[in-house]
Amino acid sequence: MWRSLASNMLTVLLVGLFLVAGVVLWGQSQYRAEGPLDSAMCLRVESGSNMTRVSNDLAEQGAVTNARIFRIGADYQDKAGDLKAGSFLVREGATMEQIVDQITKGGASTCGTEIVYRIGVTRNQMEIRELDPQSLQFVELAEFEPGADAAPEIYGEKRDQSDTRYRIAMAEGVTTWQVAEVLKGWDVLSGEVGELPGEGMLAPDSYEVIPGTEVAAVLQEMQDKQVLRINAVWESRQDGLPLASPEEMLILASIIEKETGLPEERGQVASVFVNRLNQGMKLQTDPTVIYGITKGQRVLGRGLRRSELRRLTPWNTYLIDGLPPSPIANPGLASLEAAVAPDETGFIFFVADGTGGHAFAETLQEHNRNVAKWREIEAQQQAN
């Protein structure tokens, strides 16, 4: 009798174990299976939240099939206590395991609100935008010009959100002084500028920052990136260029940057200056004269006067031979590349053509015709 009872109990125990194992395997398969989300969503995890609140939120939004399995899986992976505040892009069909990994590994938010400070050549803009999870495109919420416009109410609202991201977008052709002035005036950052990096030594690009980042650290990141670009581009230079060093390449690239905003023209503009240097001709480029007047600390905002073209400064390339002593702005990667790989042309002249581009010429006679056309366009524009 006892032997029969023991046998029955063992059978029940084994069945129970098999059932438990089955439930565990089923739970694991649910945890790792493709999720029910049919379109991407932005999951916001508030500071001080917990895994129960997050799992219920996910279940309500149709991102997980079972909030309990989500929590058990997070516990089993020993990640329940690693929940991070922020906004996280949850992709279509994301598994519970993938979502747990996203919200516990830390790092920057991957969706939600972003405030971008755009540093431009003639004006700066603050843009408040939000990532649309479906299109993965940013939707602009508001923009304003710091120092000129009153900040919209939404700016203060988004500044108060802990998961708002911040970015600095530096345009090609801005000066180092312009960048430093923006950074030291933005209350998201802290600290002093310190020693100003040399002109041309900041890489135009987009930089994500977190509140409280030191201004000097941002400038150093920009400088480090530009050094890497300069070294890489210099190593790829063509043979026979009239450039003796990476420093001269940087100067030429900055002039190219200021002379044209059209990507397809950079190689041609570079060829003009390289041809002039090879022939011992003066560069005769207005942006260098302007830099001699402003030192990059303001926008001239008008045409050059004859007296300014005749005034001797180290940057007046109508009067000095060769390259000026320093860059005149921070060139982007494309202008650096154009400086060491110019188009093969016979051009030694160019002038605006009225379309936003330039007319290039090999001879003075041809150039004079192009200048006459431009004067006619100028006169027509002024008349209109």
Results as ranks from 00 to 15, higher is better:
157 E>W: 00
200 G>Q: 04
202 L>H: 09
32 R>V: 07
70 F>S: 09
182 V>I: 10
310 R>C: 03
75 D>C: 13
192 E>H: 00
182 V>Y: 05
282 K>T: 13
93 G>Y: 03
57 D>T: 10
98 Q>D: 12
113 T>L: 11
151 A>E: 14
146 P>N: 09
225 K>C: 09
311 R>W: 10
267 G>S: 09
67 A>E: 12
366 E>D: 06
189 L>E: 14
226 Q>Y: 13
48 G>L: 06
222 M>S: 04
310 R>K: 08
290 I>K: 09
354 G>Q: 05
217 A>F: 13
350 F>L: 12
346 G>Y: 03
52 T>W: 02
187 D>G: 05
334 A>R: 01
7 S>K: 01
10 L>A: 12
279 Q>D: 14
306 R>H: 07
366 E>A: 02
349 F>A: 09
156 G>V: 14
204 P>Y: 02
72 I>A: 07
380 Q>S: 06
94 A>E: 11
226 Q>E: 15
340 V>S: 05
327 P>K: 00
50 N>D: 15
259 E>M: 09
77 Q>A: 02
145 E>W: 02
187 D>T: 03
224 D>W: 01
31 Y>A: 13
21 A>D: 12
66 N>P: 15
172 E>A: 06
152 P>I: 04
64 V>L: 05
201 M>R: 13
26 W>M: 01
273 F>Q: 00
267 G>L: 11
86 G>E: 02
37 L>T: 10
313 T>K: 02
306 R>W: 05
298 R>V: 13
61 Q>I: 11
205 D>C: 05
199 E>G: 02
5 L>P: 00
340 V>C: 03
265 E>M: 06
260 T>E: 06
76 Y>A: 13
110 T>Y: 00
18 F>E: 10
38 D>Q: 03
197 P>F: 06
220 Q>C: 05
375 R>N: 08
204 P>E: 08
341 A>Y: 00
91 R>D: 12
379 A>Q: 09
79 K>R: 06
319 L>W: 01
138 F>R: 00
70 F>N: 11
9 M>W: 15
365 Q>R: 07
353 D>Q: 09
290 I>M: 10
351 V>Q: 03
37 L>H: 04
25 L>K: 04
53 R>K: 12
354 G>M: 06
279 Q>N: 09
337 E>L: 05
242 P>G: 08
227 V>W: 04
348 I>T: 06
124 N>I: 15
145 E>C: 02
216 A>R: 01
15 V>T: 15
320 I>C: 01
366 E>V: 01
302 R>Y: 05
268 Q>L: 14
159 R>T: 15
129 R>K: 11
341 A>C: 00
63 A>S: 00
185 G>F: 11
292 G>P: 14
126 M>E: 09
257 E>W: 15
46 E>L: 12
229 R>P: 11
374 W>F: 08
272 V>H: 15
73 G>R: 14
176 T>W: 03
64 V>Y: 03
362 E>Y: 08
82 D>M: 04
180 A>C: 14
265 E>Q: 07
274 V>K: 04
173 G>M: 03
107 G>C: 12
263 P>N: 12
224 D>H: 01
59 A>T: 12
